[in-house]
Simulated assay, not measured.
Amino acid sequence: MTAKTPAKKVRYAVVGAGNIAQVAVLPAFAHADENSELVALVSSDLAKRMALPERYASIEALGTYGEFEDVLQRARVDAVFIATPNTHHREFTERAARAGVHVLCEKPMAPTVADCEAMIAVCREHRVKLMIAYRLHFEAANLQAIEALKAGKIGDPRVFSSLFTQQVRPGDIRTRPELAGGALLDLGVYPINAARYLFREEPIEVLAAVSSSGDARFDGVDETTTAVLRFASGRVAQLTVSLGGSAVGYYRVVGTEGDLHAEPIYDYEQGLKFVLTTESERREHKFPARDQFAPELVEFSRCVLEDREPEPSGEEGLADLRVVEAILQSARSGRAVQLPPWSRAQRPDADQELRKPPVDAPEPIRAPSPTIR
């Protein structure tokens, strides 16, 4: 740590000042101040660079993407939170690692498996931590759903089904192929990741299809993608994601003795819940809205300060991109795609839960919501 942080706070630069950064990441530092401090902001937008320091007085250095390394040096940055479009994740991870700065990167980790592997390699080479911002790995509803399944509350979980949809704003980055937009990369990692952490195993086969309504918003990107994942245990996961549907986000896990239905379950603005049903009981579990981004900062800072491997790590991000690439390959070919064997030693569990009060999201500057409300 730098000489200026004897209280053992990790000094962060946030890279990118789009909607998610402004309404969730930047405000989260107020709830993560036990070990995390916002000291720098990197953005390509001059208006944002001028206005945001008025809201966040702790910012000491500002710069464009081209001035990234200079900003890190001037603000004596220990870690970055990368909240850029997907196509820039690898670039800024590599630049940060070469500067000796730890990396907390938004999901999806990157557009391709090759990008993910390169990010992991450069962080290992330069001995910096790499964590992927899977906020639900610290969120109570999802973690308690995991524990309910582990405890056998619905018997042996056999079938997972999920729908995650939204109406995306025309022109949003999610509609732009040059920025790796599309429903699968934007939304698909949520149900893919959920199926993996609920089943506690990795898929071995994928069958998928991409469909389009012909809406001009989605030229060059997938509007709707559906996939079926098969696991070695015989379990099956089915998911559909779309940028052209009304806002819905749920998963349902059916076991041999009951089922667990969670909705809304991927959201970060409202309270979450799940219903656990068996032959003898139906019980609803509610969880109030909380800040889901501050726990990521707190845990990553702990990993930096205590020199331990984060969960979710770069390997967790790579595990999802393996499935994403297989889904795209299957959709193109019209055939099932086999996945090479893969194992994960780390899985999210109840010990990772961190509770922080909800955020009163500020009005974003030149960063409208991605959805049509």
Rank of each mutant, 00 (worst) to 15 (best):
M1F: 02
V10D: 07
V10P: 07
A13Y: 00
A13D: 06
V15H: 01
G16H: 07
G18V: 06
V23Y: 07
V23R: 15
V25Y: 10
P27W: 12
P27G: 11
P27Q: 11
F29K: 11
H31T: 08
D33I: 00
E37Q: 14
L38A: 06
A40E: 06
R49F: 02
A51G: 04
R55Q: 14
A57R: 15
S58A: 14
I59W: 08
E60T: 14
E69I: 01
D70Y: 00
R74C: 03
R76C: 04
V77R: 01
A79D: 10
F81S: 13
I82M: 07
T84R: 05
T87H: 15
E91C: 00
A96H: 06
A97E: 08
R98S: 12
H102T: 09
L104I: 11
E106R: 00
P108T: 12
P108V: 13
A114S: 13
C116L: 04
E117L: 13
A118S: 15
I120F: 02
V122I: 15
C123A: 08
H126C: 06
M131H: 05
L136I: 11
F138R: 14
A141T: 11
A141M: 15
V159Q: 12
F160D: 06
T165Q: 01
Q166F: 05
Q167C: 04
V168T: 14
V168Q: 04
R169K: 13
D172I: 03
I173Q: 11
R176V: 13
R176P: 00
A180K: 07
A183G: 02
P191F: 03
A194G: 05
R196M: 15
R196P: 00
Y197Q: 13
Y197I: 15
L198Y: 09
E201L: 12
L207I: 06
S212D: 13
A216G: 04
R217P: 10
F218K: 11
F218H: 09
E223I: 08
T224P: 02
A227Q: 07
A227P: 08
R230I: 01
A232M: 01
G234I: 10
G234R: 10
R235W: 03
V241Q: 02
S242T: 08
G245W: 00
V253W: 03
G255M: 02
G258Q: 10
L260S: 07
H261M: 13
P264H: 12
I265V: 15
V275R: 15
L276Y: 05
L276Q: 14
T277Q: 14
P288Q: 09
A289T: 11
R290K: 13
D291H: 09
A294N: 05
E296P: 00
L297G: 06
S301D: 04
L305P: 03
D307S: 10
R308S: 05
R308C: 12
P310F: 10
P312M: 13
S313Q: 04
D320P: 00
V324C: 01
V324W: 01
A331M: 09
S333G: 03
S333V: 09
A336I: 05
P340C: 01
P348L: 13
P348Y: 12
D349R: 14
Q352M: 15
L354N: 01
K356S: 12
V359K: 03
A361F: 07
I365K: 07
R366D: 15
T371M: 13
